[in-house]
Design a protein around this nucleic acid. Sequence first.
DNA 1: TGCCAGGCCTTCC
DNA 2: GGAAGGCATGGC
Length: 286
Amino acid sequence: MDEIILDVECFNLKYTLECGQCFRWKLLPNEDNTYIGVISDRVIKIRQEKDKLYIKSNKIDNLESVVYNYFDLYKNYNDIENKISKIDKNIKKAVNNSSGIRILNQDFFETVISYIISANNNIPRISRSINEISKRYGKKIIFENNEYYLFPTPNQLANATEEDFRRCGVGFRAKYIKDTVEQFLNDNISYKELSNKSTEELRNTLLKFKGIGPKVADCILLFSCTRGEVFPIDVWVERIMTSLYFKEQKDNIKKKDIIQYADNEFKEYSGIIQQHLFYNVREGLI
DNA sequence: TGCCAGGCCTTCC
DNA sequence: GGAAGGCATGGC
C-alpha cells in the first residue's frame, strides 16, 4: 500500500481530532498516534510523528489535496496562534496548552446531520449514532481487510423513516433528521450554491431546518463552511467564558453578551479560540 | 435514583 | 420576544 508523507507546521493531529469538532475518527489501539476515519469518499489512515504526517488510503489520487483541505493545512496557523495569544492571558494559556488545533473543513451534509444529533447529547452517543447511520445507509469500503462506511448522501437516506433513524439511537432527533433529509432532496440543496451566501444569510438558511438552532448552526458554519468568525456557545463554553470574562455578573449573563464579547475581542478568530477553550475546559487544563 | 449530555421545539405569556 | 417544560437514551 502506498503511503504519502506530508510536512506540516503548527499542527497537532491528536488535538485536532479530539477537540470535539468531529465524531468518527478512531484512535487505533496498539499503534502510536494513528487514527482511522473517512474523508468524503475515502478511508484515511493517518499518523503524526513530529512535523510529518504519514497517510494511507484506499484511494490515492488527489490524496494530498484532500488531506490539505480537510485539515486546513493551506492556512498559516503559526500566524494565527501568535495573533490570538496577544489578545489576553487566558487565550495565551489555552493556546499554549493545545497548540496545533486546526479547524476542519468537513462535509456539509454530514456536519448538518451530525450536529442535529449533537443537541442535548453526549459525544460517545453522538459518535455511535453517526456510525450506525453510516453503516446502515452509506457505501461500504474495504480497507486493509476491514469494513468502513462513507456517510450517506441525502439520496441514500431518502427512504429511511423516522423509526429507522430512531433505531440508530438518535432519540427524539429522528424527526428532525427525517425532515432535514427531505428538505435537502426537495430543494436540491448543494453546498456549492450556499457557499456564496454571507455568513448571516447562511445562518438564517440553516436556522430554518428543524433541529438547528443558534448553536448547531454556528457549529455547521465553523466546521464545514469556513466561517471562522462564528463562536458556538454550548454549556462548556458558556461556563468557561462566564468564569473568565463575566465573573461579577455571572448570575444574569446571557449568550448574547458572550457572542458580543467574542465579536468585539476575538473577531475573525472567534472559531479557533472557541475550539481551544472547549478543548482546555473539557480536559481540565483551565 | 437522579442528573447530565456540544439545545431545540412548543407552548404560553 | 422571552421564559418554562419536555424531550430519547445511556452513562455515571
